[in-house]
Amino acid sequence: MTVERELFDYLLRLADSPLILAQRLGEWVGKAPAIEEDVALTNVGLDLLGQARLWFGHAGDVERRAGGPGRDEDQLAFLRDTREFRNLLLVEQPNGNFADTLARQFLFDRWHFLVLRALTASRDARIGEIAAKAVKEVAYHRQRSADWVIRLGDGTELSHTRMQAAIDRLWTFTGEMFAVDAVELALIDAGIAADVRALEAPWRDEVATVLGEATLAVPASTHMQGRGGRGGKQGHHGEAFGHLLAEMQFLQRAYPGARW
């Protein structure tokens, strides 16, 4: 196959977004507005972490098949630097308040579900299998995050203001989700990757429906970060991201080669 290099890169994109979002959700432990939410945030994080591990397993095998080192999940998660990470800019955004966290989750979940559903038909059988498992978990995530967008949007004046501000602030990171580059184009042609260009319209419809029910406005701004091949998917991240990695990777960096 001629697309092994692209496939490896694409698998990192699939792995890194859930990994980084799980990392952010882990920061909430013990600090959520209610115990049920603490448990739920951790539960979603745990699902996402599990998905990242499956994608990393596939990525390592593809890398080995292509004559590379065949790195394992921990080498991929803990020993790459900022520019080598392929996650969406959206998921690396700091937690902010509960509305910021749930708005980030909602915008991602709606995209994530559509991508995974498309990937269940991938010509790469293992991608199809992982997507089929993950899409069941994400079906619950998207329901839960939409419920919170509606509760907070249509809650009190304060919660409405906070949720609208969160959606407005994060909106600029959603354009990247539907932009394709040479890596994705090659794999779309091969029937392996999801064509995210076709997912933008259904995503917008779903998001508009939920925001409508939440009495929130769809942001008017069209300014999008990460377009033109300079997004998270290409390894161009924000300033906060290096700090996230410094924390996440500390032990592997400080004690090279140790087994834990």
């Binding site: 920061e27 013990g30 603490d38 951790t42 972490l49 591990r53 999940e73 803990f78 834990w260």
Partner: peptide
């Protein structure tokens, strides 16, 4: 008791250890 463990969730040394710790803390909330 979730707090002292939560202190290490974001710094767990491997993905497997991180998953186990998150599951454990989730149990404690339960």
């Amino acid at each position: 008791g979730m707090l002292p463990e939560g202190n290490w969730v974001t710094r767990a040394p491997t993905l497997k250890r991180k998953a186990i710790l998150m599951a454990k803390i989730q149990d404690e909330g339960g």
